[in-house]
Design a protein around this nucleic acid. Structure first.
Lengths: 241, 241
DNA sequence: TCAAAAGTGTTGAGCGTACACCCATGC
DNA sequence: GCATGGGTGTACGCTCAACACTTTTGA
């Protein structure tokens, strides 16, 4: 079956930049392309938009189909429309960025992908890597640029919206939360000031539990209070780290 | 001539939210649709993306063709992809927002538009107008929603990027600049604090001239120093109003 | 001389930042 | 008992916000 239009049209795709954080670093989910174009290269998960779905739905579907992820934080990022960004033909791509709890989700390949893995963001070549790349990973198409845009957005946004909690397990220590912010913001934070500020917002529920299996004093666990955040932000609270 | 593809494709359009400020209020440029779809309704200027142009280029071209504007500040806003946002067929639209000096540009209709005019933003029905609309202007398609998104973006962005100067004449008084910020931010500002803060950034060049033709003491004119801003912002200056 | 807007300083409160030590726990 | 990170308070400087009067100019 084929489809005919009076004027030529670009193909329309979505691509997802899926971030995760572990003890080590900020990571991004990559898939290895199995199809013809850019075969074998590492790329962001994505695919073409269907006529009966919104862009958000297309992004969620691709994420599910290509990497088995569902119920993740997903937000539109930017639309990339360079004429030659795909060598086959004109493809415009609406990029999304997503945040997942790595602990809950193993990277696994699914349809259309030969393989999937979490890669350290700092090991990937992007426009902001500069010109001295010590063997950085090259992504297919303009995905390096898309990743760069996503990283900037994450860095800006994490400061005034409680995105961090999307990346951590439901129960976490203040140390983990601070580490997350340090990884995302790419700078160290002062422990006392960080704790004072975060706790002062009254958005963390202090649990009766502590972490398990550590070779030193166990830290208290906290949980983010989404309901309280919703209520307060309607009244004009501004979350700022 | 017709064009055939293996899978169906949405049409891809760009729409532009063009803001201007005059003595009175924040305005947006609307065109009255001359084509078949939404005939006679007021809408944002826009049109379909050609295969040989980027999205930015398409936005600039449409703005030129439909309203005669060129060399304006233009930035991608968000991509709107609801399935039924256009009743004719599936159309995905990449929205742009633009800032122009109203004093330099009369609104004038061109190709594809029956008429063009500057409308007060607050007279237009948007999702944030609430449910008590005292005869607000309805835009075609989902353009009310697009306008709303653009207004929020402008409000956020004007605070930490010197966008305001795109909306004023080259030479302006501090009164005009403050008025602009008050209109965009939708709240009054303290005169002394505003002047201290703005002048303290050393981004305004104090001219030897004063305004002309006013029935009271004439105010000094200033000019924004783009070069100095470029230099300083590379060194990590943060412009904040 | 009157009307209208230009221009100008000070003070108090709150916030961000810098900084060091004792405590609890597991091994 | 020692290594490791958990947990805690204070002081200073800066920025923000509130606030009112004199000066200049044109009509």
């Amino acid at each position: 079956m084929s489809h005919t239009y009076q004027y030529p049209r670009p193909a329309l795709a979505v691509d997802c930049v899926v971030f995760g954080v572990d003890d080590e670093a900020l990571k991004v989910l990559l898939i290895q392309r199995a199809g013809v174009a850019a075969h074998g290269q590492w790329a962001l998960p994505g695919g073409f938009v269907h006529l009966d779905e919104t862009l958000d739905e297309a992004a969620a579907r691709e994420l599910r189909e290509e990497s088995g992820l569902s119920r993740v934080f997903l937000e539109q990022l930017y639309t990339f429309g360079q004429v030659d960004r795909d060598p086959r033909e004109r493809v415009v791509s609406v990029a999304y960025f997503a945040l997942v709890r790595m602990s809950d989700h193993q990277a696994k390949a699914a349809t259309d992908a030969a393989d999937a893995r979490w890669a350290r963001v700092r090991d990937i070549q992007t426009p902001s890597s500069g010109t001295d790349p010590p063997m950085l990973l090259q992504l297919a198409f303009d995905h390096g640029e898309i990743l760069d845009t996503a990283r900037q957005r994450l860095r800006n946004k994490v400061r005034y919206q409680p995105l961090g909690f999307e990346l951590l397990p439901e129960k976490f220590t203040l140390r983990q939360l601070q580490h997350l912010y340090e990884v995302v913001l790419e700078r160290p934070l002062d422990k006392r000031n960080f704790r004072r500020k975060i706790l002062g917002m009254n958005l963390l529920e202090e649990l009766a539990e502590t972490e398990q299996g550590v070779a030193h004093r166990a830290a208290r666990l906290y949980r983010f209070d989404h309901d309280r955040y919703e209520r307060l932000s309607r009244e004009g609270l501004n979350f700022e780290v």
